[in-house]
Amino acid sequence: MASQLTAPVGAALAAEVEDLLGSAEPEGIYRDTRECTGILLLAGLLLLSPPTPRPKSVR
């Protein structure tokens, strides 16, 4: 038996439903292996990544 839908609760729940249905994309989480950052230096000669240290790009 469905419980009484009181106005404020019903509206909040309906809004939550719409949010879950048509949610915006979450922020991207970008990860790269740490393994190669040393190799990328000299071994990365000729355009395989510049020599400056890269900031972490996790947002």
Partner: peptide, 17 residues
Amino acid sequence: MAEQAQQESTSLSAVVA
């Protein structure tokens, strides 16, 4: 009322799961 709405809003995700 607001508190109940809060409880319900966290439990929607749980029920969906």
